[in-house]
């Protein structure tokens, strides 16, 4: 016990500080994303730390649970968002375990969105929740991507995928369609994205309409960690050890990816739900054709 406890405290502090780092980096990148969009639209835009300021501001705001909310689901869903993305962060960036678990966790994010929307009792929240189920079409390319990566590397463990790239070069040049499909997933997760039907302004704020105050702050924290994890995953799986083994280069890579995504988000209109789903299914078809082609030729 005497030896275990200090060790365990060390690991807990380590885990919390890594989570805090992911939140701060993710939050700054999302602030940067907002800044780029503003500049493209000819506005000065808020400062880059605005996302973090919002998170801290909402954390200290008074809340009251709406009378229509279904508790404890209403509160637990906001907590579950952070649980899901912290788990993805640790299993991905720290332990470099299976890619399949991370895909599973990404699907759990849909449960968070759906649960948030439906538990609030608000019609806007409900519509956001239902749209999050539609936008599950974005996950279908993800499974095709996982399949095609397995065909190439014979493993789904992130550590093995990074080692494969150490010997054979970045996967992005070998599987451009898969990288494109994953990139579309990144775009669909970005705020103000053409695929952002879940938080469409025509349904107020979608599933987070009734989650305000500290609950919104928790959702903002989970979104920042999610942004960090998804960018990290893209860099680790498709660009590989050249960038991912150096923390500074990883940060630069994340900033560049955020910059590209921001430009795309600023220049594209929001698609309607049916167009968004149709486009994502088309991309899936593209990756599946590539997968079949690779399976036949291997």
């Amino acid at each position: 016990m005497d030896i275990i406890v200090p060790n365990n405290i060390y690991h807990v502090v380590d885990a919390i500080s890594y989570g805090l780092y992911a939140f701060l980096v993710g939050g700054l990148l999302l602030g940067f994303h907002r800044k780029i969009i503003s500049r493209i639209q000819g506005r000065p835009g808020p400062p880059i730390i605005q996302y973090l300021i919002h998170t801290f501001k909402y954390y200290l705001k008074e809340i009251s649970i709406p009378i229509t909310a279904g508790n404890p689901l209403y509160i637990f869903m906001a907590l579950m968002g952070i649980i899901v993305w912290l788990t993805a962060l640790y299993l991905g960036a720290v332990f470099k375990t299976s890619l399949l678990i991370l895909v599973g966790l990404y699907v759990l994010q849909k449960i968070v969105e759906h649960g948030c929307g439906l538990s609030s009792g608000s019609p806007y929240g409900k519509l956001g929740g239902v749209r999050s189920v539609f936008s599950a079409a974005a996950e279908v390319p993800l499974f095709a991507v996982v399949g095609i990566i397995y065909i190439l590397t014979q493993s789904l463990i992130i550590k093995d995928i990074i080692s494969y790239q150490l010997l054979n070069g970045p996967i992005i040049f070998k599987l451009p369609f898969a990288a494109f499909a994953f990139f579309i997933l990144l775009i669909s997760k970005a705020p103000n994205s053409p695929f952002g039907i879940v938080k469409d302004k025509s349904i107020v704020s979608g599933y987070i309409t009734e989650h305000f105050g500290i609950l919104e702050s928790l959702i903002l924290i989970s979104d920042a960690i999610a942004w960090f994890v998804l960018l990290w995953l893209f860099i680790a799986v498709f660009i590989g050890p050249i960038v991912i083994l150096n923390p500074l280069l990883t940060l630069i890579g994340m900033a560049i990816l955020t910059f590209i995504i921001s430009i795309i988000c600023a220049l594209t209109p929001l698609l309607t739900p049916n167009h968004s789903v149709m486009l994502q299914i088309l991309i899936t078809a593209l990756v599946i054709v590539d997968l079949i082609h690779k399976t036949i030729t291997v």
Partner: peptide, 23 residues
């Protein structure tokens, strides 16, 4: 330990936040 931290940190964050919630 890492997964436990991921599971229980949000509960702590929410609990502390609710203690700071203004009257």
């Amino acid at each position: 330990i890492y997964l436990g931290t991921a599971l229980f940190t949000p509960f702590m964050v929410y609990g502390i936040g609710m203690m700071l919630n203004p009257k």
